[in-house]
């Protein structure tokens, strides 16, 4: 089974990297969104590999099913032209900066992993949703509630912003 886990890891990594390259390289916004969705599906696969199917399904349900669909809606409303400003090539400097920005964290993380390897890689045990719920409402109660408050504030803020615009008309 260990070999299969490694194969699965490679497949998911390829999906994630392929999706992100597709998202960055495509000139059409909708194609970029499809790349993003591919990456999100790959991440869900990684959760599956870490024996947390709940997280994997939630990732699919929330990000693929709802968030990306809403992003799609926004893209459709903006009527982005396929031959817009972003479609033409950027100067060389931009590419160099972009590469540096992505390579810096990758280099730091890689150096950390190589110099300080994890003591042992155990097969992750599956956490049942009951345990997960008890954890969220027990020892991690405060962060859980704080996140809900932040989401609530964001939602109320969004409603308030659109309310004001409507009043001016």
């Amino acid at each position: 089974m260990e070999v299969m886990a490694k194969v699965a890891f490679c497949v998911y990594t390829a999906v994630i990297i392929g999706g992100s390259v597709f998202a960055v390289a495509s000139s059409s916004l909708v194609r970029a969104l499809v790349g993003l969705i591919t990456t999100l599906v790959g991440v869900a696969g990684m959760y599956m590999l870490l024996a947390s199917p709940f997280m994997a399904f939630m990732q699919l349900l929330i990000y693929v099913g709802a968030v990306s669909v809403l992003i799609f809606f926004a893209v459709m409303l903006t009527r982005a032209e396929s031959g817009g400003d972003e479609a033409s090539g950027a100067p060389m400097k931009t590419y160099v900066f972009g590469l540096a920005a992505t390579m810096a964290p990758a280099a730091i993380l890689g150096w950390l992993i190589l110099t300080r390897p994890v003591a042992s890689i155990a097969v992750p045990a599956e956490v049942s949703i009951k345990q997960l719920g008890e954890g969220l409402l027990g020892s991690y109660f405060l962060p859980f509630e704080l996140i809900s408050v932040i989401l609530m504030v964001a939602m109320a803020g969004a409603v308030l912003l659109t309310w004001e615009k409507r009043g001016k008309k």
Binding site: F57, L60, V64, G65, V69
Partner: peptide, 21 residues
């Protein structure tokens, strides 16, 4: 599947995506 119901809900959400695409 332990989370069978969630599996169905998660994967059926692909349909909405397919429709808009």
């Amino acid at each position: 599947v332990n989370l069978g119901l969630l599996l169905i809900l998660a994967f059926s959400s692909f349909n909405g995506l397919a429709v808009i695409l």
